[in-house]
Amino acid sequence: LGRYDETGAFVPYFDRAAIEDGALANKGLEIAWVADAAEFFFLQVQGSGLIRLPDGSLMRIGYAGQNGRGYVGIGALMRERGLIGDGPGQYPGSMQGILRYIHENPEAGKALMRENPSWIFFKENLGDGPLGSLNIPVRKGSSVATDPNFIPLGAPVWLDVENNVADGMWIAQDTGGAIKGVNRFDTFWGNGPEARTIAGGMSSRGQALLLLPKGVLARLLAR
C-alpha cells in the first residue's frame, strides 16, 4: 500500500506521526473527533468500537482500512525499557496500565504511540456489529481473532489459558494487524466496563486446540 507524492513517485503511505501532524487534513475525511488520543489509539488496536457523541448517543465504528505500515506493540516497548512491572515508576502491563502511563506522561506517551506507525481508518457501521473479517457480527464470549495463515476463518478453537475466564470454545471470526503467528488469539468481550476490564488484562499464556472434521484432518496429514 502506498501513494503518489508531489513528484509522481510511488512512496509508502503516511505513517501515524504524519497523519497526526495533518497529512490528511482538509480533505473532508473525518467522521468524528475524539477527546482522548490514548483511548483512540487503543480503539485502533481493537479495530472497532463505540464513540459517545456530545448528545449522549453512540456511534458504532468499524474497520475501513489500514495504512500498510507494520504494527508495533507499545506494551512490548515499555517492557523492554523497564516501564512494566511492580516496582517504583513502573506500570501494569495491561491496557489500563499502559493508558495510565500515557496519561501521566503525555509527551513521552505521545512519542511512544508514534513508535507504532500503523494507522487504522474507520467507517460508521449503521447495522448490527461490530463486523469481523467474515463480514458477520462478532459476539462477545464466542468470537476470536486469529492469524488466517494458521487458523482458518470459521474454525472452532478450544482455548485453555492461565486466565481461565477465556477457557472454552471460540470461533475464528476476525483477524488483526497485531494477530500474527500460530499462537496469537484475541478474544472478543463486547463493550462496557466489565468487557473493558476483562479485555484490558487478558494477556495470558496457554494452549489452543484447532478442531477439524476427521476428513479434513486426514487430507492435511496426507500432504
Rank of each mutant, 00 (worst) to 15 (best):
R3S: 07
Y4S: 04
E6L: 12
G8F: 12
G8V: 13
F10V: 04
V11Q: 11
F14L: 04
D15Y: 14
D15T: 09
A18G: 09
E20G: 10
L29Y: 09
E30Q: 10
A32C: 10
A37M: 07
A38P: 01
F40W: 08
F41W: 13
V45R: 01
G47R: 00
G49A: 05
G56P: 05
S57N: 03
S57H: 03
L58P: 00
R60A: 02
G65N: 01
G68C: 06
Y71H: 00
I74D: 03
A76W: 07
A76V: 06
M78F: 04
R79N: 09
G82E: 07
P88T: 09
P88F: 13
G89F: 13
P92S: 15
M95D: 07
M95N: 02
Q96L: 05
R100P: 01
R100N: 11
I102M: 03
I102S: 01
H103P: 04
H103D: 11
E104P: 06
N105C: 07
E107R: 12
E107S: 14
M113H: 05
F122P: 00
G132K: 03
S133I: 05
N135V: 06
V138Q: 02
R139A: 15
R139H: 15
S142Q: 11
S143I: 11
S143M: 07
V144N: 08
V144L: 06
D147F: 03
P148C: 00
P152S: 06
G154P: 01
P156L: 03
P156E: 15
D160H: 14
V161K: 03
V161N: 05
N163F: 14
N163R: 10
A166N: 04
W170Y: 09
W170V: 11
W170P: 02
Q173G: 05
G177I: 02
G177Y: 08
A178L: 12
K180Q: 11
G181S: 13
N183V: 09
R184G: 08
F185G: 10
D186N: 12
G192Y: 12
E194Y: 04
R196Y: 09
G201E: 12
G201R: 09
R205M: 15
A208S: 15
L209C: 08
G215N: 15
L220S: 10
R223T: 14
R223E: 06
